[in-house]
Every structure is written in structure tokens, then in C-alpha cells.
């Protein structure tokens, strides 16, 4: 598809400049895309490992929780865990991955517990020991869960960016560049055509003039 433009030399110059720019942009975007892909793949790998690890630990913790839930009344269970003892203070900053701004979490354990083991917000008389184990695992898992959230969000944003870049690359590659080059060719041909016809006309005129004399 060529554009509807006047096949003038000025237009040709303008289009050539645009084509040049498009080709350069295309190359840059392609590089960006490749780099993004590389980063993304690293991130995904990390994400996968993290997720598997979290799931591996979360599954038994949830199973234990379920069993504790079975031997404790709903009321006792809710009472036991309604007031968490440890708190995570979460600060969100930005990190720049190839000009994609992903959130970066930093956290700090706060409140209640003195010492490592002091994470249980309930008394021991009315609670099941099965709850202890699941609370301990969940508490250990918390930093990993936060990291997982961060990595997953970054991967998500990165995937968006890759998609956008890929679309731009494609648009340049398959639409704009062919269009421009075709138009350029068309104008060039048009101009050459005009030149040739002017030349022929000139030769004709020359012949006529020569024949008269």
C-alpha cells in the first residue's frame, strides 16, 4: 500500500528521511525487545523457582491449618488468629528494568515478638498443637511470599512492555517501512518517468526543430 502523496521531489526527500528514521527505530526497538525478552526469561525462571518453592511449603502448611481447623471450633480458631502478633511494615519503591517501572518491596518485621520463636498470637489452653506448625511455616514463608509478589508483578509489567514493543516492531516492520519504501519507489519511478517523458519530448522537439531547418 503506498501512500497518497504528490510525487514530488520534495515529498520524496521527506519520505526518505522518514524511512530512514523508521528503519533506525525498528532496529533499536528490536534490540530493546530482545533485551526485554532476555530479562523477562531470567525473571520468569526466578519466578518459577520461587513459586515452586513457596507452593511446596505452602501446601503442607495449608493442610496442617485445615487439620487444626477440623479439631478446633470455628470460634476458637478465629479467636486464636484474629490478632496477629508480628507485623510486616512494607515500603514500596520503584525499580527500573529497561525503563519499565516495577515495584520493589522492602519490609521489616515489627511489633510483638521478641526473638525468633515468639510469633504465636494465642494461648495454649484452648488451641490445638496442629495450629503451631502451620503458623510457624506461614510465618517463615512470609518474606518469600512478598518476594514472589514483587517478582510476579515485575514479570507482569515486563510482559506488557514486551508485548507493546513487539507490536511496535511489527508495525514498523510490516506496515510503516514497506509502505514508506513502496511510496519512495513509486515517487522515484514517477519522477524518473516524468524525466524520461520530458527527455522524449525534448528529443521530439529537437527533431521537429531540426526537420524544419
Amino acid at each position: 500500500m503506498r501512500m497518497r502523496v504528490n510525487p514530488t521531489r520534495m515529498e520524496l526527500n521527506r519520505l526518505k528521511k522518514r524511512l530512514n528514521m523508521a528503519v533506525r527505530g525498528h532496529r533499536l526497538l528490536k534490540d530493546k525487545r530482545d533485551e526485554l525478552m532476555r530479562q523477562f526469561i531470567d525473571l520468569i525462571k526466578h519466578n518459577k523457582e520461587l513459586r515452586e518453592e513457596v507452593e511446596r511449603e505452602l501446601q503442607p502448611a495449608l493442610a496442617k491449618f485445615l487439620l487444626a481447623r477440623a479439631v478446633m471450633s470455628g470460634e476458637s480458631m478465629e479467636e486464636a488468629i484474629m490478632f496477629p502478633k508480628t507485623r510486616f511494615d512494607l515500603a514500596v519503591s520503584r525499580q527500573n528494568i529497561m525503563s519499565v517501572y516495577a515495584p520493589k518491596f522492602s519490609w521489616e518485621k515489627a511489633g510483638g515478638g521478641q526473638g525468633e520463636g515468639d510469633i504465636y498470637p494465642y494461648g495454649f489452653a484452648d488451641t490445638s498443637a496442629e495450629l503451631d506448625a502451620s503458623i510457624a511455616t506461614l510465618s517463615q514463608l512470609m518474606p518469600k511470599l512478598l518476594e514472589l509478589a514483587q517478582v510476579e508483578k515485575a514479570a507482569d509489567l515486563l510482559a506488557d512492555e514486551i508485548e507493546k514493543t513487539r507490536r511496535r516492531v511489527n508495525a514498523l516492520e510490516h506496515v510503516l517501512i514497506p509502505q514508506l519504501s513502496e511510496t519512495v519507489r513509486y515517487i522515484t519511478m514517477k519522477l524518473e518517468e516524468a524525466e524520461r517523458s520530458a527527455l522524449t519530448r525534448l528529443m521530439k522537439v529537437k527533431d521537429i526543430v531540426r526537420g524544419k531547418t
Partner: peptide, 13 residues
Amino acid sequence: QRPDPQWIDIILD
């Protein structure tokens, strides 16, 4: 002095 939910349970139990 120190808000600790565990204390509530322990003292009441």
C-alpha cells in the same frame, strides 16, 4: 506497655 494478643489468652485461661 506491650500490646501482645497472646497475653490476653494466657491471663484469661
